Simulated assay, not measured.
Amino acid sequence: MRQFLARRPRLARLAAELGKFGSVGAVAYVVQLGVTNLLWAVGTTALTGQAVGTLCAIAVAFIGNRFWTFGDRARTGYGRETLLFLVMNGVGMGLQVACLGFTLYVLGLDGPLARNVSGNVVGVGLGTLFRFWSYRTWVFPPADRDESRAA
């Protein structure tokens, strides 16, 4: 596998970013699950609990992704990166909440299992795909044109 990746540096870079992104995401996911389920346990509404849990995970993910996952990419300004990160995470959170809302209000399923599957599995999965693509494309762009063609 190492020889395969050594002959394909763009693929090796993508695999490394994907691994780091997944690691950061796993930590953020644990934070999100913990906060969301804690809020649900104390009586917070389903959508509010999901949104607050996701906001906590976004803070963890920003630090990990900015300084580790995409740490070798061009720095385009803390303010710009933060704003775009929050916008892209707003879209990702919208996907999560939409999945949960669909389960609650269209399918009529409400319970811990239905909430976790729709919001924390399906919603997080769709949001994660969008986030990885948008971070690589807009939030933390490649340092030069050669890398941008590899993306």
Rank of each mutant, 00 (worst) to 15 (best):
A51P: 03
A28Q: 08
A59L: 15
A41M: 04
V42L: 07
A51M: 07
L38H: 12
L33H: 03
A57M: 11
A46T: 09
Y29F: 15
N37M: 12
L55V: 12
E17Y: 08
L38A: 15
T45F: 01
Y29A: 14
G25Y: 03
Q50F: 05
T45R: 10
F21N: 08
F21S: 08
T36N: 05
A26P: 00
G25M: 04
A51E: 01
G19V: 11
V27P: 02
G53M: 10
G34H: 09
V35L: 01
G25V: 06
A57V: 11
A41L: 10
F21C: 06
G34F: 06
G43R: 10
G53Y: 09
K20D: 08
C56S: 10
L55T: 08
T45A: 13
A46K: 03
A59N: 13
W40C: 06
G25T: 11
L38K: 02
A28D: 05
Q50T: 04
L55Y: 09
S23G: 15
L38V: 11
Q50C: 05
V42P: 02
T36I: 01
G53C: 08
Q50I: 00
G19M: 05
F21P: 07
T48V: 15
V31P: 03
A57I: 12
Q50A: 15
I58C: 13
G19D: 00
A51C: 08
C56P: 07
L38T: 14
E17I: 02
Q50D: 13
A46L: 08
T54Y: 15
C56D: 08
A26W: 02
V42A: 01
G22K: 09
G25L: 09
V42S: 03
V27Q: 06
V52G: 11
F21D: 00
G34R: 09
I58P: 03
Q32G: 12
A59S: 15
G22R: 06
A57F: 11
A28R: 09
K20E: 13
G19P: 01
A46C: 00
N37E: 12
A41Y: 01
A28I: 12
A26Y: 03
I58T: 11
L55R: 07
L55Q: 13
L55C: 15
T54W: 13
A57E: 01
A51H: 02
N37S: 05
G25A: 11
S23Q: 12
G53R: 09
G19S: 14
L47M: 09
L18D: 04
G49P: 01
V52T: 03
V31H: 12
I58D: 11
L38S: 13
L38I: 09
V31Y: 08
C56N: 08
G22C: 10
Q50L: 12
S23E: 00
V30F: 11
A41C: 07
G43M: 07
Q32F: 01
V35D: 04
S23I: 14
W40Y: 12
T54M: 12
N37A: 05
A51V: 15
E17G: 03
